[in-house]
Simulated assay, not measured.
Amino acid sequence: MTAATTLHPDFTIGLVQIRVSNLERSLAFYQNIVGLSILRQAGREVEMTADGQNVLLILREIENAKVLRRNSVAGLYHFAILVPNRPSLGLVMRNLIATGIHVGQGDHLVSEALYIQDPDNNGIEIYRDRPRDTWEHDTEGHVKMATDPVDVDGLMAASAGLPWNGLPAGTVMGHVHFHVGDLGQAKVFYVDLLGFELTAHYGDAAMFISAGGYHHHIGLNIWAGQGAPAAPVDAAGIDYFTLLLPNEEERTAVVERVRQAGYAVEDIGGVPAFRDPWNIGIRLIVKKTL
């Protein structure tokens, strides 16, 4: 891949919009268990925030939406909420334990992560990064990652005596992770076309990609099976996620690449929008400048 088709290093993931089957139930979950708060509501859509200003997650109710078995279709595996430090993650863990929800966990060397499912089987990761200067790379330049046990005692100690007031200011959407039907096709779309760079492999079943040297902005896997179909539009899952780009020139360049590859690009309120090969929506936003 040439430099002309590499995403600008000043790139981040923005908000994620998901479909849920019961808005009231989901609001209780995302406020009490995850720690987000309501920013605004319009009908059966609710914008949720950590800092009272920026939208991290939008819940859109599809009444009586199908709730799919986990790892059964292409689509959302999880969205990943990044908290600013280790004490914050310790507080998240304390709150999750107090609620009695099942919590998965993994120390990925570059990060410490906790995993839960919402009432509609939408996957959620809440994590904190270790300092970037501590990340190690292999001989190919890929970021070294693993799935080791989290130091639970250390997280508890880091958050001892601190109050839980929900997710703190400084919390952002760190990455997204999808089931896809074919890794080769995913690489063509996300790496060769959009301009992400490969940062790591997990055997032959998953790959991780990013811009600017981050460990991963997007994870892609075939754990739902080679050739997995796209999730039905009337089922819980992801509607779209946003790519935050540094300027209009970068956005225009991405749009042109997508159009030239034959993908339809819509204009939704001035925002270019298109879909990946598994019907996952992508919208391109220019970052706000102060």
Rank of each mutant, 00 (worst) to 15 (best):
G195T: 09
G195L: 06
F196V: 13
F196L: 14
F196H: 11
E197S: 15
L198H: 15
A200N: 15
A200T: 10
H201L: 11
H201W: 15
Y202P: 01
Y202G: 12
G203R: 01
G203K: 03
D204R: 13
D204S: 14
D204M: 15
A205M: 12
A206V: 13
A206G: 13
A206T: 11
A206S: 15
A206F: 12
M207L: 15
F208A: 08
F208G: 09
F208R: 06
I209R: 11
S210W: 12
S210Q: 13
A211N: 02
A211T: 09
G213S: 08
Y214E: 11
Y214A: 12
H216I: 06
H217Y: 08
I218H: 13
G219H: 04
G219V: 05
N221E: 11
I222N: 05
W223V: 07
Q226H: 15
G227F: 01
G227P: 00
A228Y: 03
P229W: 00
A230F: 02
A230K: 09
A231C: 06
A231G: 05
V233K: 11
V233R: 12
D234T: 01
D234N: 12
D234M: 02
D234E: 05
A235V: 01
A235E: 02
A236Y: 01
A236T: 03
G237P: 01
G237K: 01
G237S: 04
I238W: 00
D239N: 14
D239C: 10
Y240L: 10
F241E: 08
F241P: 08
F241T: 04
F241G: 09
L243M: 15
L244N: 12
L244R: 10
L245H: 08
L245N: 11
P246Q: 11
N247K: 14
E248A: 13
E248Y: 04
E249K: 09
E249Q: 12
E249I: 07
E249S: 13
E250F: 06
R251H: 05
T252D: 15
T252C: 10
A253C: 06
A253S: 12
A253Q: 15
A253K: 14
A253F: 06
V254L: 11
V255K: 03
V255M: 03
V255Y: 04
E256G: 03
R257K: 00
R257P: 01
V258S: 05
R259E: 15
R259I: 04
R259P: 02
R259A: 05
G262W: 04
Y263C: 04
Y263G: 02
A264Y: 08
A264K: 14
A264W: 06
A264R: 14
V265D: 01
E266V: 12
E266G: 10
E266M: 14
D267N: 14
D267M: 05
D267P: 07
I268Q: 10
G269D: 07
G269A: 02
G270E: 05
V271P: 00
V271A: 04
P272D: 00
A273C: 13
A273W: 01
F274S: 00
F274G: 02
D276N: 03
P277D: 00
P277K: 01
P277I: 01
P277N: 02
W278R: 00
I280F: 08
